[in-house]
Nucleic acid binder design. Structure first.
Lengths: 139, 139
DNA sequence: ACACTTTACTTGCGATGTAAAGTAAATTTG
DNA sequence: CAAATTTACTTTACATCGCAAGTAAAGTGT
């Protein structure tokens, strides 16, 4: 039998995500950045220049989405895209100083937003939650 | 400081959801139903006729999305929409036998898909995960 | 070399997400 | 009771999602 929608894992996952992202999206709107563009910047800032496939995977974006998002971000000057010398199919994507500035401008506030949830749950439960979610991402 | 993207709560939430929804979307494609339409049917089957606002809330859909989705579903004969007698702004939305048939046709398989994740985590951890996620949905 | 397959990425399409503006019915206010 | 406000829902606009099909470069086999 199907569980009540109030305890349906997919629905509860959506709600949780929506709650957390709402304030973050609001914050990013100040810089005209979408949450997906933010993820791309975060990954590039953390890992350095990355090829498109790996980037899509790390930013949890579908490939077609990344293609279009990257075009927009390139236009905005947030990233650069350069063809690999050895494999001309492959694109290396890197963050620009402008992109890094966006990260720097919002890093503190973003961290605070997440910290509020960490406090609400308590640090231990928060880590527990992360671990459980990561478990769902392994089969 | 920002956490590594691999332990970023929003990103991990997306990934978890994506993992769970992928097989469900695949299943629903057989009946030409999207995951959002499935949620609407689920809520209507559980709660009976519901006004649009409440329905959007329970199905975790934004209002504009629900408007469009309801139009599509009405055309498909999955739901009916009737104006409230006392308040003509308000729409009461109800599931049809055709819609109920979709639920019946996929209920078992949907339950099995979720059950796989329940087994993977263990029943206790699974409930724990639901509880933690629900905690995020209260501030 | 040549055809075949794989890989990396792009494009197209229909549906949804998100924000903002619009409409119409109900309620409140003066 | 007329004007202002609120509520319930619709429409619009732009970006993204998810799937499927397409393109081009690299690799593989013969």
């Amino acid at each position: 039998m199907l569980p009540s929608t109030s305890r349906s894992l997919p629905i509860v996952l959506i709600r949780a995500r929506e709650n957390i992202m709402a304030p973050i999206r609001k914050m990013l709107a100040d810089s005209d950045i979408t949450e997906q563009q933010w993820r791309v910047l975060r990954v590039l800032a953390e890992f350095g220049p990355t090829d498109a496939s790996t980037l899509a995977d790390r930013a949890s974006l579908l490939f077609p989405s990344l293609t279009r998002i990257a075009q927009t971000m390139k236009t905005k000057g947030l990233i650069t895209q350069t063809a690999d010398q050895n494999d001309r199919r492959r694109q290396s994507i890197a963050i620009t100083p402008v992109g890094q500035a966006v990260i720097d401008r919002h890093a503190d506030e973003a961290a605070q937003i997440v910290a509020r949830y960490k406090e609400r749950l308590g640090g231990e439960k928060y880590e527990q939650l992360l671990d459980l979610l990561l478990l769902l991402d392994e089969g």
